[in-house]
Design a protein around this nucleic acid. Sequence first.
DNA 1: CAACATTTTAATCATTTGATTAAATAACTT
DNA 2: AAGTTATTTAATCAAATGATTAAAATGTTG
Lengths: 209, 209
Amino acid sequence: MKKKPEIEINASTEEKIKEAARVVFTRKGYAGTRTRDIAEESGFNLALINYYFRSKEKLFDIIMVEHLQLFIHSVMGIVNEKDTTLQRKIELLVSHYIDMLVKNPNIPLFVLNEINADPKKLVEKIGVEGLDRKELVISKQWAAFAKANKVTVNPIHIMMNVVALIIFPFVGSPVIRNRTGISMGQFNALMEERKKLIPVWVNAMLVSK
Amino acid sequence: MKKKPEIEINASTEEKIKEAARVVFTRKGYAGTRTRDIAEESGFNLALINYYFRSKEKLFDIIMVEHLQLFIHSVMGIVNEKDTTLQRKIELLVSHYIDMLVKNPNIPLFVLNEINADPKKLVEKIGVEGLDRKELVISKQWAAFAKANKVTVNPIHIMMNVVALIIFPFVGSPVIRNRTGISMGQFNALMEERKKLIPVWVNAMLVSK
DNA sequence: CAACATTTTAATCATTTGATTAAATAACTT
DNA sequence: AAGTTATTTAATCAAATGATTAAAATGTTG
């Protein structure tokens, strides 16, 4: 027989192709990516891509699911902690996501795009349909906080705002950099500042009337 | 000779094709759009598209420039008013943009995408390189406001935040709707609320320390 | 209506692109 | 080393796609 293949054919080559696919797909999107681009980026022959992943779409799905999981799984850990306050969770989420986005600034636009292209296709692939938002620890914390502080605003607004303040600068980065003339380094420095600023802003929103 | 052609060949057909192109490009992006999709959407033959616009790219450029101008020109009017306060300008911008986005919810993702695909190509096409931000009325108003209220935060943050709070919900709409389960109608109602909320939130940010 | 210009179409090209195949090379096992 | 399996490649296919062409249909003018 053979030793162990079966599952892991050759982690090295396969991973190189995936990495190349990640780069190209994330930069150009599904429709904008040619299988040949991935071949070139990976340094391997075109047929290799199909040998390992059967089709462009299958490879894409793998990359996409990994991105989404990176996005979602980590958040669940924070959001469902029992002994972390609502405010502290926001601080953690902001800091955690900005760190991640500074390293992978193209992910948000890519993900938003492809979700937009086929909303239902992707939701099922990440296994989050099953969770009831109302059961999340953070939901209960919000309810308690809202009651105690007489906050009447729809929590969806707050959710949108937190996510918007974190993600939007990365999505709009080319426009922002062009309009303001700041460098990539300066941009990242601003993002670093936002780790502290966003929680303060969100707090200010909550107490504003 | 001929009557007046030269410039306006046939506004009706040409405009129908442009409208179809607008719809398809905005929904699927440049790479995701087939010239045949536009033909089908417009109801005309494929060759007509090339007859009127020579190529897919030329047609795309026209649509894109129109979108960007819709986005930018209107803002300039508001931003450069002499007799409107900073706070009032924010109210006007928010209200104006949300109205526009409720009608054209796909524009932001489309524009962000294509700018990302080729940042320099688009900037030149809208004729905004020439304007000096420091000379804008709103910039001076900001400087005065910041001094009077001892606001030290980089105004780029505030700019990003205002734009983020306005635009992000539309970019993230599929995710938001999926996660929260709200309908399109409820979503639009929330956007309507935001016209009043965002200025309040921005104000709260400015006075927060 | 005749002559001409404009508008629209069907048919066709040449590339691009996702995918397959068959064969060559490398790696591993005994 | 021989035999077997895994990996990689060059060559090729079929469908999709942007674009062109030549001709038909429609409209306009004198």
